[in-house]
Amino acid sequence: MRLSPRATTLLVLAVLIALSPLMFPSNFYYRVGSLIFMNGLAVTGMVILIGYAGQISLGHAGFSGIGAYSCAIMPVQWGIHPLLAPLLGAAISALLAWLVGRPILRLKGYYLAVATLGFGILVYMVLMNEAALTGGPDGITVADSGLPDLAEAAGLDLSNSQFWYWMSGLVLLAGAWLALNLYDSPTGRALRALHGSEVAARTVGVDVARYKLQAFVISAVYASVAGSLLALQNKFITPDVAGYMHSIELVTMTVLGGAHSVLGAVFGAAILTMLPQVLTVFAEYEHLLLGLIMMLVMIFLRDGLLPSLMRLIRGKSE
């Protein structure tokens, strides 16, 4: 029996999520694992934007910031149920992406990059400066979601890290499933068509502006949910989640692993998330090495790490 690429991807992800804990020597690794899944989720959204539609955004951390701060602000300030906050955050992100995306997505290449970058910085500055609401640069505590307690009541004896490991793993699987379904849908085909050539896509009747906007909004929701998960796990959040460096990291993870496949991008997220943990011994060299890796991969493995690795393996077996 031959599995479809979609089923293969989901299977590989599910097996990795389920079996990795067998190799975890301590609880700390659950935390790193959950961070990988959260970044993987945001990056899956970037695959839709960069890999499918061929657009770039240097401001998607802004949406992560909105998702994260929704979880921090809404339950405390406005009495909204903690589990409703991520959903409302995602809705706000979607609405904002829709409003901002309409004018921004007319731009191409570097102009699109600077416009999205500007958007991300604006969100970051609001989070930094509206201290009465957001706690300013010092950050803000996030009320407990009650979810880990619910799991305990249901008979699952999990630590906080363990709970969020499984939770974000499941959300990543769901996100990957949706993104893979989208790939083969009419929308996915339209996105790939406009990636190839906007003019050609328009000629065959694709509403280019509408589909680009859809990809932008969907990827914003992914980033927002990832931000919410991070806030709920950490129970504390600072404006850095919406910062320029985080936006850059998201794009780098996506392209590093391979922007055309969900699995590749999640692989990229895993590598870049683990890098600082592995390099704690060389903390001084962390930035130097990160920059070096970014350059080397983009110069020598243009399709990203995973596709290049796969080609190497296939080439040897044939």
Partner: peptide, 17 residues
């Protein structure tokens, strides 16, 4: 373009390091 953006951002992070 995306690759070139990442290469030069990588260069900036590298030089800063």
């Amino acid at each position: 373009v995306v690759s070139l953006i990442i290469i030069t951002i990588g260069a900036s992070i590298f030089l800063r390091g």
